[in-house]
Design a protein around this nucleic acid. Structure first.
Lengths: 215, 215
DNA sequence: GCCATTGTTGACCAAACGGTCAGGGCCATA
DNA sequence: TATGGCCCTGACCGTTTGGTCAACAATGGC
C-alpha cells in the first residue's frame, strides 16, 4: 500500500506536465498574488485560474471552495513566518539577537511581500481565518520571547520597555516595507528600493531600534 | 440667489430628518466602516446603505457610483490626516516636535482607526485612487520635513539617519495600533487596549523612537 | 485490452452585485 | 392651489461571481 502509493508519488514527480503537486503549487502561487493585490473578496477564482494558466474548474478540483484555497494560502504564509520568527533566539546578547531578528523580518518583507500583505488584510478583516493561530501559536511566541526580553531588562542589558511595544514596533516597521512598498516606491521617485537602498534601510532600522532599547 | 440658497440651507439644518447634509454624512460614515472591514471590492453598496439606514437607491442618489463614494471617503481620510501631519513643526527642539508628532499619530490611530485601515488597503491595492496625492501632497510633506530632520542632524541634535527611515518607522508603528488592532486585542487577552494601556504605549513608543534618533 | 482511479474542462446555474429608472412625496414660492 | 426643484425608493436589469456537473482523457495495475 504505502510502497505502491510512494511509487506512484515518485512517478508523478517526473518531468511530466501537470500532476497534483505542480498544479497545487501553481494555484497557490497565483492565489497568493491575487489575494494580496485584491483582498479576499476582490480576488476571483477566475483570475487565480487565469494567472495559474489553468481552467477555473481545475482550480475547484484541487481546492473545492475559495475559502479552502484562501486558508491553504494563509497556512503557507504562516509556516514561512514561523521559521523566521525563531531567529529571535535566547541569546545572552540582546544586541545580536535583535539585530538578527530584525534582519530576518526585513529579508522576509523583501523576498515575500505578498504574504505580508495577505496577513495584513486578514487582520484588518478581523482575522476570521486565523484567530485561533493568534490565540495559540502567536500568543505562545509572545509569552516566551517576552520573558526573554524581560530577563534582558532585569539583567540591565535593555532599557525597561514593554516587550509587546518592542515587538509591535519591529513587526510594524519591518512589515511596512512589504505592505506599503507602493508608497515607498512613489516616495523614492517612482522606483522600487534597490537592493542597496533596502540593505541600508535594514541597517538603519536595526540601529535605530537598538539605540532605542539597549541600556 | 446666494441669500435664498443660504436661507434654504439654514432651514435644512434644523431638527428635520434627512436632508442632503445629514444623509451624506450618514453614508460616508457607513461607507468608512464597511470599506475598512471588507476592502473596496468586498464592500457592497447594499451593505453601506443598510448600515446607513437608507435604501440602496438613495445611496446612489448622493454618490452616483461606488467609486465616487470610495473617493469621497478617501478624501475625508486624507483631509483629517493632513491636519495631524502638521503637528511635526519646524521647532528648534526635535525632542518636542517628534514627541508631539508621534502623540498626534497615535491619537489618530486611537480615535479613527477605520481611516487608517482604508488607507492601508488602498496602498496595498497599488494606490490607484491616491497615486497623485502621494506624488504631490505627501512627497512635498516628506521633502519639507525631511529637510528639517537633516537640519537637526547637521546641528548635532539628531543621530544621522535617513529621514524617510525615521518617518516610515513612525508611520508604521503608530498606524499599527489602528491597522492591527485586532491582533493587539487578541494578544491582550481578547480585550482591546484600555485608555491607560494605550496612553502607556504612546509614551513608550515616543520614548523608544526618541532614544533611537536623538544625538 | 480492460478497468478503476485520478485528472480535466466547457457549459451551465443560482445568487449577488452595481447601477438605472419611473413614479411619487415634500416644500417653498407665487 | 398650482408649479418647479429636490429628494426618495421599489422594482428592475445586465453582468459577474463561486460553484457544479457530466462527459471525457490519461494513467497504471492486472
Amino acid at each position: 500500500m504505502v510502497t505502491a502509493q510512494a511509487a506512484r508519488e515518485k512517478a508523478r514527480t517526473g518531468a511530466r506536465r501537470g500532476g497534483r503537486e505542480e498544479n497545487e503549487r501553481l494555484i497557490l502561487e497565483a492565489a497568493e498574488a491575487v489575494f494580496a493585490e485584491l483582498g479576499f473578496k476582490g480576488a476571483t477564482t477566475g483570475a487565480i485560474a487565469e494567472r495559474a494558466g489553468l481552467p477555473k474548474a481545475n482550480v475547484h478540483y484541487y481546492f473545492p471552495s475559495k475559502d479552502d484555497l484562501y486558508r491553504a494560502v494563509m497556512a503557507r504564509v504562516l509556516d514561512r513566518w514561523l521559521a523566521a520568527a525563531s531567529s529571535l533566539d535566547d541569546s545572552d546578547d540582546p544586541k545580536d539577537a535583535l539585530t538578527r531578528y530584525i534582519a530576518a523580518k526585513m529579508e522576509l518583507s523583501r523576498a515575500m511581500p505578498l504574504g505580508s500583505r495577505i496577513f495584513a488584510s486578514e487582520i484588518m478583516r478581523g482575522a476570521p481565518a486565523i484567530t485561533d493561530h493568534l490565540e495559540t501559536t502567536l500568543a505562545d511566541w509572545v509569552a516566551r520571547r517576552g520573558a526573554i526580553v524581560r530577563r534582558w531588562i532585569a539583567e540591565g542589558k535593555l532599557a525597561p520597555v514593554d516587550p509587546k511595544v518592542l515587538f509591535y514596533m519591529i513587526w510594524a516597521t519591518t512589515q511596512h516595507y512589504a505592505d506599503f512598498a507602493r508608497q515607498i516606491e512613489v516616495l523614492n521617485g517612482g522606483r522600487p528600493l534597490s537592493d542597496e537602498q533596502f540593505a541600508e534601510a535594514t541597517r538603519q532600522v536595526a540601529r535605530t531600534i537598538l539605540r532605542g532599547v539597549l541600556a
